[in-house]
Design a protein around this nucleic acid. Sequence first.
DNA 1: AATCGTCTGCTTTTT
DNA 2: GCAGACGATT
Length: 651
Amino acid sequence: MRTTEGPLLILAGAGSGKTRVITARTAFLISRGVAPESILAVTFTNKAAKEMRERLATMIDPEQAKLVMMSTFHALCVRILRLDIEQLGYKKNFSIYDESDQSGLIKKIITRIAAREEKLDPALAKNLISQAKNKGWHEPGDDKTLIGAVFARYNQELKSLNAVDFDDLLLLAVKLLSEHSNVRARWQGKFRYLMVDEFQDTNRLQLNLISLLADERMNVAVVGDDDQSIYGWRGAEVSNILEFETHFPNPTVIKLEQNYRSTNFILGTANSLIKNNPRRRPKKLWSAKEGGEKVRIIAMMDDRQEASWLAGEIHSRKTSESLKWEDFAVLFRMNAQSRLIETELRQLRIPYRIIGGKSFFDRREVKDILAYAACLLNTDDDVSLLRIVNTPARGISDGTVEKATTASIHKRCSIFQIMRDEEFLAELPARARGAVEKFTIFLDDLELKMNEPLANQPSLLRTLLAESGYLAELQRTCKTPEEWLNREQGVNDVLNSFEQYEGRSEKGLRGFLDEMLLRHERENEKEDDGLGVTLITLHASKGLEFPHVHLIGCEEGLLPHDRSKVEGNVDEERRLLYVGITRAKNTLSITWCRNRTKYGSIMPCTMSSFLKELDPELSEHINAGQLLSAPVSQENASAKFDAILDMLGKL
DNA sequence: AATCGTCTGCTTTTT
DNA sequence: GCAGACGATT
């Protein structure tokens, strides 16, 4: 911890206080006279960055804390690129494409260049392209194959749109730093001390980025746990942490092996599982928390019984031990599993919150507004332009759009440019021409107003949505008043956060849009007061902890998932279960079903092979029949009764 | 432009 | 078994 110079590898086991390590080290460096602005701490999520910033502010002078750069990989890259991307031939006002923009573009390219008989799944293509970029490839290895051709074309089109996707942010930042020594020198000079959180999740590009920033001093401190590497399928390379020495020679290695979270029953169970993985940094986690209950492994008849038992169990423990709903979490492999649980929780009127699922940014109205903003900032951004060109309907038909697209390819310019091109306009029927002209004047006018130095951008955006008829159209397309209320809320959420952003930043609409795209925060996570039982996937649960954890659906085929066996990733599935187990502080129940409804029909299931690896001394196997024959608790029965009364009341 | 019907194909998702 | 995508229909 007190090592300040040279590479440092901190192997921080589950529950050993990872975030604390980075903040404590930062505070220590500053106390030793290191300038706060020369410290960089990189995380994967905005949430982690925020937590660190907040914690640091309580440890040292908050004014100093503000100067420390705590950022996600992607946000850091945006900063680097906004300054110097021109050296790579892009314009500074480049757009950032999120995954749905990316999918849209790839789909378009596939339908355009694929021959009749060839077919390529756009989702697969997107994955392959993303994986290639995360390995540092700027172009396909072979552009004779369809996928290679799509990759090549995709890159070309992005560049002519003056847009970059999420992977490009890293790829281009690395390219910029490695090929332009002036840029590299600037950033190496700025940051003297680097820290990386969750290092086991870094991919090749992220490692490259860190190496480039570190220069020969190699003041790089990384914190991570190879046993919690569960994002291999997204390109994370466990080898980055397993072979840290090869990237940063002679590091100081520190192991944090005390777990401050779980009872020994839970921790021992976790240890007995993970020791079955080959290729790991050996460690022996221990806990001072004695006592508690054995881990329960419960066999259920089917998923229905699993859900209803769970709801009852949570209800009675909460009541008998006077706990809060927030003390409980239900962890599962697939989002689809939460449905049944939700139904049963509602039956007992237990409040819950689901983490994950669809993003705030998948909401139509949010995407529309951001597309408007993107167009005003970069009129070459065809994908955003196409999204709003006829939203609300303004008489620009699909046919007209198609003509404009063809013409823009022909003339090698953006669609917006073509729409102002006299030659192109002359080809259009009078009505279409009028509509297009009206649209370009409308956008031009707005762009002008937006870019005035003292423009009140949030209010301009608000006016735009009202006066363009967007809001009216949105309301019209809503089937129910509730839906309209909901969508209107979405619109207001965006506008309000823009107003707030204006209050704390000078970067205007551009900065706001960057932040919105990079802060892909989940809708139901934005308020932490969302009380209730937490329903969450195993992946999303990493980094969280709960007093009472229920891990459901531990069947062969689900966990480990069938596909992992084909793809040879069973170790990662084991780590996934390890992550789940180590979320629990006081009690843990693991359930599996003898039958499960899959794809509509009931399929027989067997217990996950992982459960056989758990230390039998620390856990007990129970058959659901034993639990259900037990008398129903008073509280449980009265809750059910209340629920029935409630239903009757609504009739 | 909207709506209906049929087809398909099924993890995980920090940015 | 269900959602999401796509195409045909009015």
